[in-house]
Nucleic acid binder design. Structure first.
Lengths: 343, 343
DNA sequence: CTGTTAGCGCATTCAC
DNA sequence: GTGAATGCGCTAACAG
């Protein structure tokens, strides 16, 4: 039994005494030969242990790979750690699985898209990758690109209406023109700094999700009659405990102390709540806090967090669908306010 | 500016007036030409917008893809949901990232590895895939295979010493020859049934992790002087809340009621604790419970769980290293007992 | 150090 | 329906 021979289309065709094209057609273009002949050939192949055309060669020839690269905002580690990101991946995976497309995990701190772009049909990009050079590369690639939670030029994308959502949640938090406001922004600047921001005129436009939310906050602030110049703004450059805590501490220690803390992620908001509790200040009586994202943990905090919930899994599903359907438009998905006790 | 021309190695060589081999060498074999010449060529390529040899073609030629498929035990969804699995993925990813190898997520419920096997350098397989046909396919493939938490013939693998670990934890739980024991096994049988098992002679050998643990339990049971025939055994076919609860309820309602519950996963054990609490029975006075895995949640349960901790991230790292190093042996990694209050 | 040649495994013409 | 030829984009072996 020729168990350990490696067949190729050519060798199997010769073995069966038919032409290459016939074998190829038997596998890929059933209409090109009689059903009977096709069955015979397929049966023989199976018996001989030939599983079908080599996919790598097939892809080179056709230019179709059935693989999409999921560009993560950060390292792979981040994805598994972050509940919001995980849900997104889950959504993407479910749709791709149905379409028999494979999922390649691509770290957002990779240097270059080139290492995979010849291998994939395109990219689904979740949030702005940590290595910002990737953005430029994604802009230039000829491969299909769908982004979620940020935009690259004319590419397809999916997100909630960040500006309106931000405005809505900020309005809940701000209750008087005399409020002292602190905004804890996530990746407001294209820098690795966690710092206070005094000049808001040159905020990074590329990280447009932060930008959009900030516009929303500003709108709410202005409508409430608060002077923008008196609002404190801090930048958290990465959504993790370490940097969030740093910014939270800085914001809470600034004088005069804010009584409204508007956070661009629930993670930041939860850490703010912890710190405020530890300082013996009561929420929402003395300080009001709002978040953004609607992660499960925000339902279990003390007090529970008022925030914007977005359905990450749905976002993943939509992103994958846009990809599969070769869409080129931007799609907004719904969000809703979660009314907690923090404001 | 020829921005939108798609260069190939051949076309760029012609453009530069050199041979294909020279361009190829400039990118892939620096020793084959003078540094100066190489720099010139690379510079010209960059200027013209040629990023280097097409990876797909390169791979077809070399038979090397720099992609490994991570075969998950179940759908991708499962990976993101299960904390133990997530840690494993994280470990694998960190090593692969360092080696510039990409990670393809491959669902354990896929029908056939053929869809990717021509694309990858091999497989890292985490636990027994839900679709058991994949096991046979992995056994037959010529690609590299590393398994974790189970074995396929002669392939490389990594796991803890399940038998001894199981024996150790069971010994902690069993304290008298008169103990009434219930074993809640995970995938003891190759069936989708969640059921009580009466005949242990034909347990599925393929799911060898369960098998090894069961051997360990048996050893402890025998050494304690308990009649194996009086031990109740239930099979949970999938490590999730639904099926675990089903088995737990069945086990707790069986007469005579067991006073020792030995669980093959922490998830099962935690659910057992919940049910026992709800029944108003005290742990560990009236019933003792032990788990397996050492997930974080087991440290927060009431009472805390006595279990075997295994370092999943390390397991992932080891698995990836075995892969990268083309190892062919089995590697055991350490485990340790977590002493909780449940026994 | 450079250029030529022959495939890697396949799909698509185009004649027959 | 079939079979030969051409090329997807590249690398390795060899000759110069």
């Amino acid at each position: 039994m020729p168990e350990n021979k490696t067949w190729t289309l050519k060798s199997i065709a010769k073995m069966l005494g038919v032409s290459n094209a016939t074998v190829s057609n038997a596998f890929s273009r059933p209409d090109q030969l009689s059903a009977k002949r096709r069955q015979e050939i397929l049966a023989s192949c199976k018996e001989l242990g030939y599983a079908g055309p080599n996919k790598a060669a097939q892809s080179l020839r056709k230019g179709l790979f059935n693989i999409v690269a999921l560009v993560l905002p950060d390292s792979v580690e981040y994805m598994v750690t972050d509940p919001v990101a995980s849900k997104f991946v889950q959504g993407v995976a479910s749709v791709l699985e149905k379409n028999k497309v494979n999922l390649l995990l691509f770290s957002g701190i990779s240097e270059n898209i080139n290492s995979v772009s010849d291998f994939v049909d395109g990219f689904i990009c979740y949030g702005s990758p940590r290595n910002t050079e990737l953005i430029e590369q994604l802009r230039l690639t000829r491969k299909k690109v769908v982004t979620a939670d940020f935009d690259i030029d004319r590419k397809a994308s999916v997100s909630i209406d960040n500006e309106n959502a931000a405005c809505e949640i900020a309005k809940l938090a701000i209750q008087s023109p005399d409020d002292k406001i602190a905004v804890l922004g996530l990746r407001l600047l294209d820098t690795e700094l966690t710092c206070r921001v005094y000049d808001t005129s040159n905020l990074d436009i590329d990280c447009s999700i932060a930008h959009q939310r900030f516009i929303g906050y500003k709108k709410a602030i202005e409508q409430a009659g608060v002077q923008l110049s008196s609002v404190g703004i801090w930048n958290v450059h990465e959504n993790n405990h370490h940097f969030a805590l740093m910014a939270v501490k800085a914001a809470l220690n600034a004088k005069p102390r804010a009584n409204v803390i508007i956070c661009m992620s629930d993670l930041i908001a939860l850490i703010a709540l912890q710190e405020i509790n530890a300082m013996g200040i009561s929420v929402p009586q003395d300080i009001r806090v709002v978040g953004f994202d609607g992660i499960d943990e925000a339902l279990r905090s003390t007090p529970t967090l008022t925030t914007i919930h977005q359905n990450s899994e749905e976002k993943g599903i939509k992103a994958a669908e846009l990809f599969i359907n070769k869409a080129t438009h931007t799609e907004k998905i719904p969000y809703h306010v979660v009314y907690g006790k923090s404001c």
